Computed example of a mutant assay.
Amino acid sequence: NLQEMTELDVIVVGRGGGSIEDLWAFNDEAVARAIVACRVPVISAVGHETDFTIADFVADLRAPTPSGAAELVVREKLAVIERLVDLYARLKQAMTADVTAQRERLHFLARRRVLTDPARALRDLYRRLDDLQGRLRLGLRAGQRQIRHRLALLTQALSARNPAARISADVALLGQLRGRLVSGAAHGVQASRARFATSVGRLESLSPLAVLSRGYSVTRLPSGALVRSAAQARAGDLLEILLHQGALGARVTEVRERDERHQV
């Protein structure tokens, strides 16, 4: 059974020319079924080009003659050599093009400023720093000149006026205002104390610390957000529990979004 031979690439079924009786064996049903069942490609080369048998129609390929089948199976040596030469030329051309492209890229990278003059960027930054320092010094000097000018104008205006009379009147007015201020301040302090005491009472009634003193606590996430629902935390999260006195650090071991206990 030829198809069991693993080293076979193709099978040629053929015979030289002859009468129809000589070629009749290739019309046999058993031969045709064997050709169809063969796993190796089969070339039919029976008789002359004008002869046709059932084997020609069931084979993978029909050759006009046995010699034609041999030409189909084994290529001419010259064609193989030409193919190899063509592949070598194409491979050489592809490798040359790739080497040329890589050489051009290397030359391009070698001409970049960061490689040819790496200190240039630092020099540019130093020049910009010097320019900013010069502008800062000019701005400070202009501000100082403006302040000295305004101070001179104010000094001149103050010298043009005699402040002695105004000082006497202002001293008398100051005494009157001081008396009013003292009485008003005393009355205001008393009223403020009363309002403060009222506000303190209201604040103490609303203060979270007062709630904490009754045994409650406040739970916060590491971000500082208050935990109002179990859905805000996951198992393994760190929590901070604020008590009336002090605080506790806790880690979540279980999350129950619905508490089955009786509500207090």
Results as ranks from 00 to 15, higher is better:
G68D: 00
G68N: 03
G68P: 00
G68H: 01
A69Q: 00
A69G: 00
A69H: 01
A69C: 02
A70M: 07
A70G: 10
E71Y: 01
E71R: 00
E71K: 07
E71N: 05
L72A: 06
L72C: 04
L72Y: 00
L72V: 06
L72N: 00
L72D: 06
V74P: 08
R75K: 14
R75L: 14
R75Y: 08
E76G: 01
K77Q: 01
K77V: 01
K77G: 03
L78R: 12
A79G: 14
A79K: 09
V80W: 03
V80E: 04
V80M: 04
I81A: 09
I81Q: 09
I81N: 09
I81T: 08
E82V: 05
E82Y: 06
R83Q: 00
R83D: 10
R83T: 07
R83K: 03
L84F: 02
L84H: 00
V85E: 12
V85T: 11
V85S: 10
D86I: 07
D86S: 11
Y88I: 13
Y88W: 13
Y88K: 13
A89L: 03
A89R: 02
A89V: 06
A89S: 05
R90D: 02
L91A: 07
K92V: 14
K92D: 14
Q93Y: 07
Q93M: 09
A94I: 10
A94V: 07
A94Q: 09
A94D: 12
A94P: 08
A94M: 10
M95L: 15
M95P: 11
T96H: 10
T96Y: 08
T96A: 12
T96K: 03
A97T: 04
A97H: 05
A97G: 08
A97V: 05
A97R: 03
D98K: 11
D98V: 13
D98G: 15
D98Q: 15
V99Q: 07
V99F: 07
V99L: 10
V99D: 12
V99K: 02
T100E: 06
T100M: 07
T100D: 07
A101G: 06
A101V: 02
A101F: 04
Q102E: 14
Q102G: 13
Q102W: 13
Q102S: 14
Q102C: 12
Q102I: 15
Q102L: 15
R103L: 15
